[in-house]
Amino acid sequence: MRAFLIFTVFLAAASAEHCYKEIEKACDPTSNKADSTPINCNAKYGAIDGVQSALQKYVNDHIERSFEYLLMSTHYANYEKSREGFEKLFRGFSDSKWNTAIDLIKYITKRGGQMRFPEIDSEISSNEDYEMYELQSLAKSLDIEKTLAVEAHNIHGLAARRRNEFHDPEISSFIEEKFVHKQADDIRALSGHVADLTKLLDGRDSSLSLYLFDEYLQKL
């Protein structure tokens, strides 16, 4: 038992000085260059290995969503739909998903991780339709935002577990700061839009309601 304890202490000390030991060996003129390249002098610590694949998927989901929002905004910009407010709303979401994807890639590499892009070439599945009525598109957007928010919660949950290979307060704090609060704001704003427009469309003629609601969205 005592031997085991000593061994554990020794291991902990060794892992804390991995890089230094490797560099010492690499600088030693008698050691062979091929087997003394340092491999542990990286930015990795904490639980990045345990959370990395969830973060990579989160990047890819943001890229996909940014393309979906681009299609939705394109639809509202055609001359038949001509809804500048809806165009602006969805274009804003498309831009922010894209920029978030880039920021997340930078974050993964900041923590010593790597980005992995999707390896299968899949088209938007054939039943997906981005040419929707106004209220439908708001509903769709609300669902998208909630899915992304729950995914952020899951990553936070991974990094907040009290097990060494997962516990990483830096990651959970990053997720809180950059994602969850903004997501709550977006979700609340969208649910408000859906509530308003649902009431407005509950009448005999929706055309004026939609026109005015679109103007309202333009000014946001």
């Binding site: 393309f67 394109t74 055609n78 299968i120 070439d121 938007i124």
Partner: peptide, 30 residues
């Protein structure tokens, strides 16, 4: 996005845009 805006300005893209973009674009080299 500029190309999309141009087509819209000329009255195009009123239909069949749902499949205009492939979602997962495979990156050949990393």
């Amino acid at each position: 996005i500029k190309l999309i805006s141009y087509l819209l300005m000329r009255g195009e893209l009123t239909r069949d845009i749902s499949h205009m973009i492939k979602k997962n674009l495979v990156v050949p080299k990393t």
